[in-house]
Write a protein that binds this DNA or RNA. Structure first.
Lengths: 166, 166
DNA sequence: CCAGTTGTTTTGAACGAATCAAAACAATGT
DNA sequence: ACATTGTTTTGATTCGTTCAAAACAACTGG
């Protein structure tokens, strides 16, 4: 183990060596310096896709207690511009982040519990949709958000109705 | 002119009588009380679709100087639940409001100047899109936002390049 | 046409999410 | 190892929005 690798462990990270080096590689090859907070955020994002900054902060903190929320915001911003993560902003919720980038997939959000799932693009890849009349716009991206009830919430509402009705 | 109508004029509204009563009618038939701030907000929204609360506040203020920003938020919230206005929340911008409701149209946003235009739904009406795999969700709505450069910004960027390049 | 009820607006404060700035610090290239 | 460059911490601040209570105004029924 090199001195550099040791410093990540010293900082409190408990990553399998293979995991850590894969994460480090993707950070490095995005042209960014590899740091403990960046590894921790990227790992948290792997485990918890569609998380907001605060949730990631919580996850990162348990690995790396000294980390600040602002650091998480900074890491996410640099990851965003480097193309390592994608930021989505569904109406009424804070920004969410995911590692799945490069494809033009969409999202489905539960109106009751706010859970988010990925939805693959129906037609080819980016951009999968073309407006009928673009009004002179040069359209670069189409973003689709489906809203509905997730399977679990459909069940929850059903059993709630049973309890309330008779 | 009845005493009730006079009070709207007294409050500073300068609406053509026909306009005012049309607006009042739609507020009333949505089951809401007709008030001066509500008329002013609804009129501002007619003139300035895709406006945020602050822009509407500015417009309302010139008609009705005593109005508070919180009143505008309150009016917009009640209009929203009454189905009189639709709220859209494009990533990175405050909430925008429009009177066009009931159809499932979408929006195209300029990434440079943030101007918003309506885009009609490609296939029938609500919901115009069905995800390939809804993952057990009961899908109720599909919201599409197109991102691109508006015609004016394409021109602006072109002339800017000419100036900068040689 | 007036009074009571109900709902709306004002006033003032507070909140969550995100950003800014400067100083302390750490990762890479030589 | 050192210098450079970029990152993180610390602390404050912004913006958009919501909350709460008291003052007030629109509709309804007498």
């Amino acid at each position: 183990m090199t001195a550099t690798e040791a410093s990540y462990d010293d900082a409190g990270l408990r990553l399998a060596a293979a995991d850590a080096s894969l994460l480090a590689d993707s950070i490095r090859s995005a042209g960014l310096k590899v740091t403990a907070p960046r590894l921790a955020v990227l790992r948290a994002l792997t485990d918890l896709p569609h998380s907001n900054a605060d949730a990631l902060f919580g996850a990162v903190r348990s690995d790396l207690p000294g980390t600040s929320l602002q650091a998480v915001y900074g890491v996410l911003a640099s990851f965003g511009t480097a193309g390592l993560v994608r930021k989505i902003e569904p109406a009424g919720s804070p920004a969410l982040f995911e590692r799945r980038v490069g494809d033009n997939h969409h999202h489905i959000v539960c109106t009751r519990c706010s859970v988010v799932h990925d939805v693959d693009c129906a037609v080819g890849h980016a951009p999968c949709l073309t407006p009928v009349d673009a009004l002179g716009f040069d359209v670069r991206a189409a973003e689709v958000i489906y809203w509905g009830l997730c399977a679990q919430c459909q069940l929850d509402i059903g059993s709630q109705a049973e309890t309330a009705a008779p």
